[in-house]
């Protein structure tokens, strides 16, 4: 915990975030800033082959999987790529399945994270997501998690959770969790 966490202070100084921790209104306010800045993907269509993620969301989504997977990401670049691609596809399935109220919140969060001032000041990431690395994603997650604003902690939890479930649910990750899969005798019996 770092109560005097710098990026949030910077945000406070800029007058973006004066709301109490956990206030749902803060997202609305920040969402409005993003819309004013003309960056919202709210009206953008889903990327080709996807249901909900837009083309602009995709680099962020893949990087989220990479950042959360960390050293568990397979070393073989082709296998790693496939895991990231499958991760993004699973994120898309999960977000498409949310009810409208939750989708609105996730849209605001994704827009915010792609909005340069927020990414830089709250996330501590200088590069746009198209050029950033898994380490940059981890910097973002660290900053959101360390923030004294409940709202940003909530964003951290949401991102960590979705990144975790879409990676650790993939068979390619099972050996790293030393998870043998369902008991072999049962699989054999079920498919006999």
């Amino acid at each position: 915990m770092s109560p005097d966490w710098a990026p949030a202070t910077a945000l406070d100084r800029r007058g973006f975030l004066k709301l109490g921790a956990g206030s749902a209104a803060a997202f609305t306010l920040l969402g409005a800033s993003v819309q004013l800045a003309g960056c919202s993907q709210q009206a953008a269509p889903a990327a080709a082959g996807f249901r909900w993620l837009t083309a602009a969301d995709l680099p962020f989504a893949r990087l989220l999987v990479a950042g959360v997977a960390g050293s568990a990401l397979p070393a073989d670049p082709a296998i790693a790529d496939a895991a990231l691609e499958e991760g993004a596809r699973r994120i898309d399935i999960c977000l498409d399945a949310l009810d409208a109220p939750a989708q609105k919140e996730v849209r605001k969060l994704f827009d915010l994270l792609q909005w340069a001032p927020f990414r830089r000041f709250a996330g501590g990431v200088a590069k746009p997501w198209t050029e950033a690395t898994a380490a940059d994603m981890q910097t973002l997650l660290a900053n959101l998690s360390a923030s004294r604003l409940g709202l940003l902690n909530g964003a951290f939890r949401a991102l960590a959770k979705i990144g975790s479930v879409v990676f650790w649910s993939q068979p390619v990750a099972y050996p790293l969790a030393r998870y043998p899969g369902p008991p072999a005798w049962a699989v054999a019996a079920l498919n006999a």
Partner: peptide, 25 residues
């Protein structure tokens, strides 16, 4: 404690999460 459900409650990421997951059994 199958891996997807377990990972979802850890609220970790990167190497720390990978280390947690390596201890799953």
């Amino acid at each position: 404690l199958q891996p997807m459900l377990a990972s979802s409650v850890l609220a970790r990421y990167g190497d720390a999460l990978a280390q947690d997951m390596a201890q799953l059994p």
